[in-house]
């Protein structure tokens, strides 16, 4: 024990100084969801499988859909990504999602125009 402890003096601390030094997320990381409105066919499988009801698909017009994702409800399991038959949803590596304003936790994706 003594040897290991004394050896630590010459080692760099194992701590990551977080805000200054950010970690690279792994490739399979499940972060904030991204929605591609043009691929959506409105089958609503994601809504059906979401364990917390964080995602809502609204029909805007013929073949046009928007997704409303409530980040405070989302548990980042990415089941919706697996459920989607057209790959309209994607998990990004974005992790820093904390907000002071609750309204900013509601993310709306809709096709432009």
């Amino acid at each position: 024990m003594l040897q290991e402890v004394l050896g630590s003096i010459f080692k760099k601390p194992a701590t990551n100084l977080y805000p200054a030094q950010k970690l690279e997320m792994p490739d399979k990381f499940r972060g904030k969801l991204k929605f591609y409105p043009e691929r959506c066919i409105g089958c609503k499988m994601c809504m059906r499988d979401c364990p917390t009801g964080a995602i809502t698909i609204n029909k805007l017009g013929e073949g046009k859909f928007e997704a409303v994702i409530d980040l405070s409800k989302c548990i980042y399991c990415a089941q919706c990504v697996d459920s989607c038959p057209k790959k309209a949803l994607e998990a990004t590596k974005e992790v820093e999602l904390a907000q002071l304003d609750k309204n900013k936790l509601r993310v709306v994706y809709s096709s432009k125009g």
């Binding site: 402890v5 004394l6 630590s8 003096i9 080692k11 601390p13 194992a14 701590t15 100084l17």
Partner: peptide, 9 residues
């Protein structure tokens, strides 16, 4: 104490 435990302190 922290450095001996490999922390920043």
């Amino acid at each position: 104490y922290a450095r001996l435990q490999n922390r920043v302190g």
